[in-house]
Write a protein that binds this DNA or RNA. Structure first.
Lengths: 335, 335
DNA sequence: CTTAGCACTCTCATTATATGACTGCTAAAT
DNA sequence: ATTTAGCAGTCATATAATGAGAGTGCTAAG
């Protein structure tokens, strides 16, 4: 259990270190706590024993440990009300309420990334558990045909199909009719199986160039099932602005994680409220923190995450996420 | 005009520097050119006067200047035939010829990025000069409606629309019918105008919640017109692997260019053959080179570009691009 | 025209040194 | 029982000095 003064010291160190990125010395603290530096030092020894603080070397100032940040986030941080400036920038989006949900979210995290200099990401839930609504074709010029796969939640995947000159659009239409007749309503992850057993054998007999046609739809289905492009990443290079990432090796580590889609997908999480993960808890790298929240609005789900250095303005980020969440939620609940 | 020996020296320096990233000394050259280092040095002085070579400091070895690279690319570089290994990896894509054009291109540059450690990008021509093929809606559950805009070249943009409870799908259908009747066939960049003058006044009178509906389509149109997400970027972080970018400041410069869509769009270029742009010619940064080519296959156009340090394996990259181009082109020409 | 040889220049790694920023500890003060 | 002043000790950082190594430029001889 920490004394009041100890908590104040920890709070001071965390907040000051977040601002300056430099180790905090006992002298910097004593003014605002109204006691001498020696007293602070005595307390700091105790906080260090509890592993809430760390030193870079023997005679450096203190910096918060991972545990220290966590203690701060859980116990010391005060919910900061947003600055007018931050709010103003986000309001330009939410006042334009004709934006579709995805667009509103994307735009708002772009702004967050810009004003905070952190990296942001939106992860749609993907279409995995959607059901097939219908497939459709639109004949274009020459022998080119647009094929579309549409799910019940409104995901769309489309591909262009080039038929041989001697094969008519009718052949594709047969396939489409068959799929619409036999497979509509099936959850996407069961579709490839169903296609294989109930559609392929039939069109194999009656449709010319059935292999090409079948494969096009098959690809479209499997792509919409794994829909990984449903990851909207903004401001990756903001990490370069942080002093703790002035070393190229560290940047490399982070960026290789960012390029690994599987790693990013794991950020998605279905939890209530706004969750803060510091350092190793972030599952990305010991050097970063992730603040994220899950949304579910009329069945469209996803996760919004803000990724920054451990030395992150947690209070500001939490309040920004909170604001966004209440706005995108409210928008549709009213209707 | 360079002598034969001078060209050989330049060629040796460029190729060796590309491999090692270290300045090349006269001693390293004399073995393979069968003369003494002093002779090489005399020639190097001449090449330096012509600004084909540079020194980092008084007594360092030589490195190629921008002009030197250009001379190499234009006059000295021999078309390298691809290694079996490189070819093998790409063949896995082109042998699977059911892939749609865009997918094949995307996959192939992913491989190029992986085997070369450079950054690659595909820029679709976008849908700017497409014409509207049709708009369509698919009613989903509750009051949610999927709206789609389809162009004659097969681009698709879709948005979800949430109607108030007391407004029926019929209202949207009216709007869709009107757009299909009045605006189909119009080039996309003229559409917003046409919507404003011929569609808006009518639906303003007859359609309930016309503002929301109108704006949804309006947004879809303007998004498909600027379609900037038609940029497929791979391997940005490969730059971190290059020794000349071990300085965070340089990385910052490049990455901020990469995040600037306008800057990237400018890479697109409608030229014949495979074009090499070294350093300042690349329009991106003095520190990078761009090798790119334009494709136009059945009206689907775009640019494929490979971005790397000036110290790039030009011969290998050119042959890779050549191989890709002939494969994606050939695929559809046959049909 | 080519080459050997030497003086010269510059980088890079190593070492030494001084400075400044802090802490930890102890003993005195409150 | 705390708190504080003071001082010794530790480490990082900056600066200069040094020497070795790499590579050039130039000159004079082949």
């Amino acid at each position: 259990m920490l004394s009041n003064r100890q908590e104040n010291i920890l709070k001071f160190i965390v907040e000051e270190y977040i601002k300056s990125a430099k180790p905090i010395s006992s002298h910097q603290i004593c003014d605002s706590l109204d006691c001498s530096s020696a007293t602070i030092r005595n307390e700091m020894v105790y906080l260090e024993e509890l592993k809430l603080l760390e030193k870079n070397h023997f005679a450096s100032g203190r910096i918060p440990s991972e545990k220290g940040y966590k203690y701060y986030v859980e116990n010391l941080m005060q919910p900061k009300h947003m600055t007018g400036e931050d709010m103003l920038k986000l309001q330009t989006i939410f006042h334009n309420n004709t934006l579709d949900l995805n667009d509103a979210i994307k735009k708002s995290i772009e702004i967050v990334s810009e004003i905070t200099n952190y990296t942001t990401v939106v992860l749609g839930s993907g279409a995995k558990d959607n059901k097939l609504k219908k497939v459709e074709i639109v004949p274009l010029e020459d022998n080119k045909i647009l094929t579309m796969v549409i799910t019940d939640k409104g995901f769309v995947e489309h591909k262009n199909l080039y038929l041989s000159k001697n094969v008519s659009t009718e052949e594709v239409k047969k396939t489409v009719d068959l799929i619409n007749k036999l497979v509509v309503g099936t959850p996407l992850d069961e579709i490839s199986e169903k296609l294989e057993y109930s559609v392929k054998p039939i069109i194999g007999k009656y449709v010319r160039q059935h292999e090409l046609i079948y494969n096009t739809f098959y690809d479209a289905f499997s792509e919409i099932t794994n829909k990984e492009n449903d990851v909207h990443f903004v401001g990756r290079s903001n990490f370069l602005k942080q002093p703790e990432f002035s070393d190229v090796e560290k940047i490399k580590e982070i960026f290789s994680k960012f390029e690994d889609v599987n790693c990013i997908r794991e950020i998605a999480e279905d939890k209530n409220g706004i969750n803060v993960y510091v350092g190793s808890d972030s599952e990305l790298s010991d050097e970063v923190s992730v603040v994220k929240t899950h949304y579910n609005i009329d069945g469209e789900e996803g996760t919004i995450a803000i990724i920054g250095p451990k030395r992150m303005e947690y209070d500001r980020v939490v309040s920004l996420l909170d604001y966004i969440k209440s706005n995108i939620g409210g928008d549709h609940e009213e209707k």
